[in-house]
Design a protein around this nucleic acid. Sequence first.
DNA 1: CATTCTATTGACGTTTGTTCAATAGTGGCA
DNA 2: TGCCACTATTGAACAAACGTCAATAGAATG
Lengths: 203, 203
Amino acid sequence: MVGVRPPTRTRLAPEQRRTQLLDLGVRLLATRSLDELSIDVLAEEAGISRGLLYHYFGGKHAFHEAVVRHAADDLIAQTAPPEGGEPLERLLASVTAYVEYVVANHAGYQSLVKAAASGNDVLREIYEEARSALTGRIFTEDPWGDLIPDTPVNRLLVRGWSAMVEELVLAWVADPAGVPRERLLELAAGSLPALVESAGPGL
Amino acid sequence: MVGVRPPTRTRLAPEQRRTQLLDLGVRLLATRSLDELSIDVLAEEAGISRGLLYHYFGGKHAFHEAVVRHAADDLIAQTAPPEGGEPLERLLASVTAYVEYVVANHAGYQSLVKAAASGNDVLREIYEEARSALTGRIFTEDPWGDLIPDTPVNRLLVRGWSAMVEELVLAWVADPAGVPRERLLELAAGSLPALVESAGPGL
DNA sequence: CATTCTATTGACGTTTGTTCAATAGTGGCA
DNA sequence: TGCCACTATTGAACAAACGTCAATAGAATG
């Protein structure tokens, strides 16, 4: 006597359905990798059929790309650019916003970071753009022009610094281990001036 | 009139075949991701049948794991621990060996880095072990005990620093852009003392 | 209430990972 | 030299997952 419930298909507006799938994708791809996530599982989790996913995104990889782009946009949007003020304060404010975002929303951030290393050039570019958007906010707007001249070495340094901050925050979120949040912020923000200074006046 | 050449199967000693497949895997997985690498392609590239890969490694993921472990062992082995001497000199020597390895062998290194972010816990652990092996060499052996006390903050810092060095080297290899190799080495090695100092005396 | 529009489905074809019994080099031994 | 045992290697058959498309069913509009 199996209850044969008529398959109630729920019909949504394309926009809603799209964001529903995107949000779900961000959450699922935070822990599993793409090939560990079967369409069947995703579809069942979302309460839809496999076909619908293809209707909206055209394929598995295209879906992944959309998910990553979604996460990147979210990151950029939620870490608002700091107001005017002292360079050091703006840096601290920016880093604080970044840390706050990663702490509150690190499922999405993990999705983004993982995608960057997954071989696909498109995904990597999305990640690069997001990072550029964050670092660019601080440095393209002049006030650091004196402190951090635009040289090849400093470009390299800033790139390395952002990788370090990412690692610091992710490691700290995974295990705060007696390091208060304030201290983390000091480390992240204070390290950039220290690095630039240690690099010396060179080229 | 297709020449039906009898399929000459080449028979190797298990050890040779194993390393052949591993080396090939390292090279192929440096650019493609795992699910972009079909067994068919791998088999044809190696001149073997699909079945043989399963005989040696038991599966696609197991093969990936073996490849990553191969690359990690290679990295650890080839970046020999620096001899005795001044802490700063040992650090520089260690970083130099690391940079040298990445430059000469960055296919293998890319395989390793990519694997780390690919979701699988086993792969990530292999990567973590490799990194610990490199950083641990310098700091577990005492002489830095005075300069870099073993505190939670400094552990975090060293972790972040290694992520930065990795990013610096990979970015530099991809595009040296007017930064001489010597300068890169200075940046990588010199940044650690600068970071530790900037972190202040705190806990 | 009928009709049109379209979000959604489910069955089908195709590709790709996996298994396993059969095959063929190779080295040892008479 | 020639047979034999051992095992590296294969290829076909199986399973699972990706991708396609015509048919179906909500919902709004008149």
